[in-house]
């Protein structure tokens, strides 16, 4: 199948891109890495009149760590995150998500911003960003705003971003001492796969060997968007980390999951629920192990 007809624009700056999205509104689609957009266009799910290509905008490709904050420009490729030793050292769960995305050929094109904005419930990047408490900088001609990634996804493929806005940067705070995170995705093969399920967990301890003072658990593919498991988080906070506690958190995640078991999702609802528990327990154990070493 061939692509629909559209006009192509390649703005040189973020300001120019903002003016374009403001002018075209819903008639335009932004091309970041293109790995989701090209598929959607080819399968006739969308046919924009205008395609605004932004991977050439330098400002959107900055990747820096400064004063306790990792800043990822929206057009930083997933491959760059995989290769970054600095990110691996402090934000290991984010790296794990990046490694799990597509194949190396896809990762060389796909962008971190694109994987967030596409808002696919099986996406590999959002869970860990949510677990680390990231925020997103959205820009339009009249200024910019910062939103928590927790409030960003409103449905499959839809977000809180206005048609006149573009995502410019992702801000990921450095995890405090005695904290850790883990990401696990479940697919059929390692490369080129769509997840059946993915979970990311983060915990922070009150000093070495202390109680859990902060917890974030995020699951994907069990609802129209990635979701936080508030019930499991509540049950963890204030408690000493133990295997039994993690099992109970897993049970809470199982009960909170509302997967649809369709042919498309390639796994039954029962299977997904059981696995959500398993992956929650596993990622909590990973998070705990990291927290003890830091």
């Amino acid at each position: 199948m061939s692509l629909p007809e559209f006009d192509f624009h390649a703005p040189g700056t973020v300001e120019e891109a903002c003016r374009m999205v403001a002018g075209f509104g819903a008639k335009a689609k932004i091309f970041a890495g293109g790995t989701d957009l090209m598929l959607d266009m080819r399968r006739n799910r969308i046919s924009p009149e205008h395609v605004i290509s932004i991977p050439g905008i330098e400002e959107l490709k900055t990747l820096e760590i400064a004063s306790g904050m990792l800043t990822i420009g929206a057009c930083v490729t997933v491959a760059r995150v995989v290769k970054s030793k600095e990110i691996a050292a402090k934000w290991g769960a984010l790296c794990a998500g990046a490694k799990a995305l597509g194949s190396c050929l896809v990762r060389n094109l796909a962008t971190i911003g694109g994987n967030v904005v596409s808002a696919r419930p099986a996406a590999d990047i959002p869970p860990s960003l949510m677990a680390y408490g990231a925020s997103l900088v959205l820009k339009k001609t009249s200024g910019e705003r910062v939103v928590s990634i927790n409030d960003f996804f409103t449905g499959t493929g839809s977000t809180a971003m206005g048609p006149d806005e573009i995502l410019t940067r992702i801000l990921v705070p450095e995890p405090p001492p005695h904290s850790g995170a883990g990401y696990v995705n479940l697919g059929i093969r390692n490369a080129c796969d769509i997840n059946i399920l993915n979970v990311s967990s983060y915990i922070a301890l009150d000093g070495p060997g202390g109680a859990i003072k902060d917890a974030r658990i995020v699951m994907g593919c069990v609802a129209p968007t990635h979701v936080r498991v508030n019930s499991a988080e509540k049950l963890l906070i204030g408690e000493k980390p133990t295997d039994a506690l993690f099992q109970r958190a897993g049970e809470a995640a199982l009960n909170a999951a509302t997967p649809r078991g369709s042919a498309y999702s390639r796994a039954s609802a029962e299977y997904k629920k059981d696995m959500v528990k398993e992956l929650t327990v596993r990622t909590l154990a990973m998070a705990y192990r990291e927290a003890m070493g830091r």
């Binding site: 192509f8 890495g33 293109g34 090209m38 290509s53 050439g56 050929l105 094109l109």
Partner: peptide
């Protein structure tokens, strides 16, 4: 496949291997 799954369309673009079915020709300018 035309969808980024098979790699038959691999080319090296500015030193990086990519699936050329996911890139628009205009973007190669």
């Amino acid at each position: 496949c035309g969808e980024g799954d098979c790699g038959a369309c691999t080319v090296i673009l500015d030193g990086t291997p990519v699936s050329s079915c996911l890139v628009l020709a205009v973007q190669a300018d």
